[in-house]
Design a protein around this nucleic acid. Structure first.
Length: 177
DNA sequence: AAAGTGATCATG
DNA sequence: ATGATCACTTTG
């Protein structure tokens, strides 16, 4: 399967978040082994105008990689113990990214990074050329469901309402709530 | 329901 | 230097 190229990553975050569902997140470990797992859940964070996006507070040391061109990894530590894996999208100097919230067998952003052994050492890694981490296109087009993003209670109501969380719509496998 | 955990950022 | 906050997970 072909790897996603720089050009693919230049799309905007909501578009790419949808497109990444069903694609394979690939990881080559130190020992040479390869992990290749389907992406099942993503979220888009779009620009300084998006009050849920880390870049809403402007360019800082932490958010610097969000301003890189699409295709770079943005990895940060949350709650002192969970590494979060994002893929930067769009052109350089426009901060937007897609959070990988789930892959098959590891539902939840902290579990994704644990499963694939991803940490801040991969921050700013370029997925268009990296030998350590990249994305391959999936086959077929899964049916996608959109819902509001998780864990962004601090954001403005306008942004909390945006349906920028993307999941594979599985038959009858929805959680009762 | 609530702790656990530490980087980050705004404040002083 | 200090303190609040946090794109979460696990345990009870």
């Amino acid at each position: 399967m072909p790897r996603l190229s720089r050009e693919d990553y230049l799309k905007d975050a909501p578009a790419l978040a949808a497109e990444l569902i069903g694609c394979f997140l690939c990881r080559r470990l130190e020992d040479g082994s390869l992990l290749r797992l389907r992406i099942t859940e993503t979220e888009a964070y779009y620009g300084e105008e998006d009050s849920a996006c880390h870049a809403s507070k402007g360019r800082t040391k932490r958010t610097e990689t969000l301003y890189f061109s699409g295709g770079h990894a943005y990895v940060y530590l949350c709650y002192g113990m969970h590494e979060m894996m994002n893929i930067v999208t769009g052109p350089a100097d426009h901060p937007e990214a897609v959070l990988i919230r789930g892959i098959e067998g590891a539902e939840g952003p902290g579990r994704v990074t644990k499963r694939l052994n991803i940490d801040r050492g991969l921050n700013a890694e370029d997925l268009a050329v990296s030998e350590k981490i990249w994305v391959e296109r999936g086959e077929g087009k899964p049916k996608i469901k959109t819902t509001p993003r998780i864990g962004i209670g601090y954001a403005k109501a306008r942004d909390r309402k945006r349906k920028w969380r993307f999941t594979i719509a599985l038959l009858g496998k929805e959680k009762s709530k």
